[in-house]
Simulated assay, not measured.
Amino acid sequence: MILLSISIFWLSVCVDPISADPHITVEAHVGSTALLPCSLSKDFSKTPHVRWRADNEFVFERNIDGTHVGPGYEGRVDVPEDKLRKGNCSLVLKDVRITDHTFYRSFIVEHVEATNTDKIQEINTVQLNVYSQSVSAQVGSTAVLPCDWRQLSIQTPHFEWRIGDEIVFERLGKESFQGKGYEGRVDVPEEELLKGNCSLVLKNVSVTDETLYSSYILMTDTKKSVLVQNIKLSVSEKSEDRKDDRSAPSVIIISIVCSVFICIAIFILMKYLRNLSNFRNSCNLRRCS
């Protein structure tokens, strides 16, 4: 089994973050607009110097002199100046692509005149999960998470499905590996994979299977993984289970309503009998007199 280890190297001095924002996860569909949150501790009279990076790649930078955009992000990213002066350094990422699926970090840069160097402080980290399709499945059913790698020319594909860094399924030729908790439940049939169909078959779906699944193909020449597809799996209970769950409150309500009607009927009957008794007593008194 081959696992991809990605080392993130930052050529900057990172000190205590300005804001105490925890690690944030944002989900976005391919083609949509994602907002990667970021906030500063105060407002500024002039535009602060803010920088965004994705892993070890430059994404966007705004300072008093203007903006700079990294390769591949032209026309797709911005930190609006009016919001930035108010302490909102959130990155707007348009036309989200599958390749945008990664970690993003935001920094504020201050120039130190005494040493003529830049002081760089990390603000926060955002994980952007990009999915191209959503799949729904019921508990106990079989789900097929679609995937197609025909655009890549590889004779014997080495394929993986993951949840984050956790291996769900891996296949290289006839050899395969099923991750912990997925034994006997997952497969990418070899004959389908050779046709370019890398769809994951997930049997006996459970509620805990609801998450984001990523498919990767491992390149033998570069020893690197290439992200092919991200699929969001939503799991619901069986329809009969939901019907049973809904029927229980209905039975209780019907029982309460019936009880109320019975009580009202008994009250009316008792009142009628009491009035009838009073009427008879009144008649007897008149006869006696």
Rank of each mutant, 00 (worst) to 15 (best):
Ser45Thr: 10
Ile6Asn: 15
Leu152Tyr: 13
Val109Ala: 03
Ile123Met: 09
Ile18Gly: 06
Asn56Cys: 08
Gly31Ala: 06
Ile18Cys: 07
Glu175Pro: 03
Gly75Thr: 08
Cys283Lys: 14
Gly184Glu: 14
Ile98Cys: 12
Asp241Gly: 07
Glu110Tyr: 00
Asp78Ala: 10
Phe58Cys: 05
Arg150Lys: 13
Thr67Asn: 12
Glu191Ala: 11
Gly72Glu: 04
Ser236Cys: 10
Leu91Tyr: 02
Leu11Trp: 05
Ser32Asp: 14
Phe9Ile: 08
Pro157Phe: 00
Lys243Leu: 15
Val109Ile: 09
Glu81Pro: 05
Phe58Trp: 00
Met1Leu: 13
Ser19Gly: 11
Trp161Val: 01
Tyr213Ala: 00
Phe279Asn: 12
Ile123Pro: 00
Ile254Trp: 14
Leu93Tyr: 05
Glu110Ile: 01
Thr25Ile: 08
Lys232Cys: 14
Glu240Cys: 11
Asn88Tyr: 02
Cys263Pro: 02
Val207His: 15
His101Asp: 11
Ile120Cys: 01
Pro71Met: 08
Leu193Ser: 08
Val130Ile: 08
Lys232Tyr: 12
Phe279Tyr: 09
Leu202His: 02
Asp65Cys: 03
Ser136Ala: 11
Cys198Met: 07
His111Ala: 02
Asn278His: 09
Tyr216Asp: 02
Asn63Asp: 11
Ser206Val: 15
Asp209His: 04
Phe267Trp: 07
Ala28Ser: 13
Ser215His: 01
Leu4Thr: 10
Leu212Ile: 01
Cys288Arg: 15
Arg97Val: 05
Val135Pro: 08
Cys258Ala: 15
Leu128Ala: 04
Arg76Met: 10
Gly75Asp: 11
Pro80Glu: 14
Gly72Val: 04
Ala137Thr: 11
Tyr104Ser: 07
Val15Leu: 14
Ile264Tyr: 02
Asp21Ala: 05
Asn63Trp: 01
Lys271Phe: 13
Gln121Trp: 02
Ser239Pro: 13
Ile24Gln: 10
Ser289Gln: 11
Leu273Cys: 13
Ala34Pro: 04
Met219Val: 08
Arg85Asn: 13
Asn281Lys: 07
